[in-house]
């Protein structure tokens, strides 16, 4: 594209204000908007006026230019039609993934529901058949392991984080606070607890992942409802002096979080997930030992974060469960 006469004279280059030897990139970008080829071609043309035989060549390039413009128009038209192709792919992928997650969660809850129904059916059939002995022990252990759905009177606690625009700076409720509260409930005589519809079983953990609280590895959403089955008035009286309740009532005053305790005559709690059974195995032997040795029914770990001595109290209270009628 460079013609011989447009090449800067090495001597004159330093003095010519139009063509500095090394133009600053940004300055050039700000000045030379037009393709320099046009100027060069015009200079070439003025230097050598086009003779007659060149006419065919110009005609050809004019036709070519028209064709190129046609192509450009097609390009614009296509891109106008295919706007969705230009839409950010990341956004589309994200929506698709979110839909996948939703579908999987729906499927999981359906499967969990059918598993609970089947287990219930199994238990009622066993009760009808009047199978005693070991089966009774199993169902008692299942009760203690918080696997069976239960119904009864109790306390309902609703907690929610402070609204984001309050002066307190948006206090955040952490998993530690919920753990303390739940330990207080066990200590004041709760027999079964569910958080946001997820039943606590001996091996459940209350953890935090990012901004959300996970109970038994399932996310629960604000506002969180904690249902505890037990003697409502007794639990209320006992829990007032305990540290978790004190912490939450002071939070409610200082940071404007929501903390409502109410007594309920009837609470329906779902069954816990139970967890996968682990089988004992004699060292050296390859055959599995007795299949009833499920560690999840060990009664010594009835509280989710069993750092509190009240866990033992809770598990002893769990034995007084005849009135919750798990087998319907």
């Amino acid at each position: 594209m460079t013609s011989p006469e447009s090449k800067p004279d090495p001597v004159a280059a330093g003095t010519d204000p139009q063509r500095p030897p090394i133009p600053a990139l940004l300055a050039e970008m700000n000045r030379d908007h037009l393709d320099p080829g046009y100027a060069a071609a015009a200079r070439r043309k003025s230097a050598a006026p086009a003779p007659a035989p060149d006419a065919g060549g110009t005609r050809r390039s004019t036709v070519l230019a028209v064709v190129v413009l046609l192509v450009a128009g097609v390009l614009f038209g296509i891109s106008a039609v295919n706007r969705e192709t230009n839409a950010p792919r990341a956004e589309k992928a994200r929506t698709a993934l979110l839909e996948d997650v939703d579908r999987a969660q729906e499927r999981q809850s359906v499967l969990a529901g059918s598993a609970a129904a089947l287990a219930q059916e199994l238990r009622s059939t066993q009760a009808q058949l009047g199978a005693g002995g070991p089966l009774e022990t199993v169902s008692a252990l299942e009760n203690a392991g918080q696997i069976t759905p239960v119904t009864g009177p109790g306390l309902r606690i609703v907690i929610n984080e402070a609204p984001a625009d309050t002066a307190g700076g948006g206090g955040v409720i952490l998993d530690r606070d919920v753990q303390l509260l739940v330990n207080d409930l066990w200590a004041s005589g709760a027999e079964a607890i569910s958080i946001g519809g997820v039943r606590l079983q001996p091996r459940s953990a209350i953890r935090q992942a990012g901004g959300s609280i996970l109970v038994d590895n399932k996310p629960v959403f604000w506002p969180i409802t904690i249902d505890a089955i037990g003697d409502p008035t007794g639990m209320q009286v006992k829990s007032v002096g305990l540290p978790g309740f004190g912490r939450f009532s002071s939070f409610a005053q200082l940071y404007d979080i929501e903390f409502d305790v109410s007594t309920q005559q009837r609470l329906d709690l779902p069954g816990g997930s139970g967890g996968a059974l682990r089988y004992a195995r004699a060292p050296g032997s390859t055959t599995a030992a007795s299949s009833t040795a499920a560690s999840s029914t060990a009664p010594s770990a009835a509280a989710p974060s069993s750092t509190d001595p009240s866990a033992a109290a809770a598990s002893s209270a769990a034995s007084a469960w005849t009135r919750t009628a798990p087998t319907g």
Binding site: V66, L70, A72, G73, V74, L75, F76, G77, V81
Partner: peptide, 12 residues
């Protein structure tokens, strides 16, 4: 040519 191109791109 430009207009025709746009129309073609939109229609085809």
């Amino acid at each position: 040519a430009l207009a025709a191109g746009v129309v073609i791109g939109l229609l085809v």
